[in-house]
């Protein structure tokens, strides 16, 4: 069934979503209707975390959010982490640590780490592991990702 047109607020901008179908996920609408393909589509069942975004500041899988139900919410995607085109602290840290291999999981992991560091500027390793437990990476073995989170935490603490 088609839905009435609605407006989604993504990365601080209002986006009209015309001609949508009711059952479309936020992930689908971001990628296919709003031209924001940074959030990745893999499992579509919340297992892989590659579609992670922040909705009203909370980390969620955008594949499990009904797009039309997010009206009036603030959605932040990976495109919104570095709006000015300069890399965000978490992005710089991932580059520096070599935490990116194929890169498919990277946007979701960056959103998870960004959310974590907002809540806890100095997380211990167990906290980090739990915070990224919903983001699968099949390349790195996570070692360099954990190193990147440490660097990102340092960068963020220095900047604040």
């Amino acid at each position: 069934m088609s839905a009435d047109p609605y407006v989604l607020r993504v990365n601080g901008r209002d986006h009209e979503v015309p001609d949508a179908h009711l059952g479309e996920s936020l992930l689908w609408v971001l990628r296919e209707r709003l031209g924001l393909p940074g959030s990745k589509n893999a499992c579509e069942e919340g297992e892989c975390g590659s579609c992670s975004v922040q909705v009203d500041g909370e980390l969620v899988c955008s594949c499990l959010v009904l797009a039309a139900s997010a009206v009036g919410r603030e959605v932040i995607t990976i495109e919104g982490l570095a709006p000015d085109g300069e890399l965000a602290d978490v992005q710089r840290a991932f580059v520096e640590a070599g935490a990116v291999q194929c890169g498919f999981c990277t946007p979701g992991l960056l959103m998870a780490v960004d959310t974590l560091l907002d809540a806890d500027p100095s997380p211990d390793e167990l906290t980090v592991r739990e915070a990224i437990s919903g983001n699968l990476c099949r390349c790195t073995g996570y070692g360099r990702i954990l190193a990147a989170v440490e660097i990102a935490a340092d960068l963020r603490r220095e900047a604040s």
Binding site: G46, L59, A112, G134
Partner: peptide, 9 residues
């Protein structure tokens, strides 16, 4: 349950 993403929702 699940992961942080799942527990938030």
């Amino acid at each position: 349950v699940g992961s942080p993403q799942i527990r938030n929702a």
